[in-house]
């Protein structure tokens, strides 16, 4: 297997995630797009680790586990924030959250 198979699939998922972050205005859907981006990075970590030999493969897997943990924390806090926005404004439309706009 070519390493580029995995890396380019990672790039595709990453770009789809970037599109989702930019184009969606529902807060929950933006968080889902961020999950796509994190998964793309995880594929890259495991594939590149596997390319460099056993020690790097283990390192890549460990870093992937860290990223999964961070993703779980991020979703927890992110959804709490979205829930607060919903409670205060009765919608999760991120275009309406412009209090800090100058």
């Amino acid at each position: 297997m070519l390493v580029n198979q995995f890396l380019i699939l990672g790039a595709v998922l990453f770009c789809i995630g970037v599109y989702g972050v930019l184009a969606r205005r529902n807060g929950v859907l933006v968080l889902m797009s961020i999950e796509l981006i994190l998964n793309a990075v995880n594929i890259n970590l495991v594939a590149l680790g596997s390319l460099q030999g056993p020690e790097a493969a283990v390192a890549g897997q460990v870093f992937t586990l860290f990223v999964v943990t961070i993703a779980a924390a991020e979703v927890g806090v992110g959804l709490a924030i979205v829930l607060l926005i919903y409670r205060n404004r009765a919608s999760v439309d991120l275009d309406e959250v412009d209090l800090m706009k100058g």
């Binding site: 779980a72 806090v77 709490a80 607060l84």
Partner: peptide
């Protein structure tokens, strides 16, 4: 993060 999420929500 867990404590923060609970405090926020």
């Amino acid at each position: 993060a867990l404590v923060g999420a609970i405090v926020l929500a």
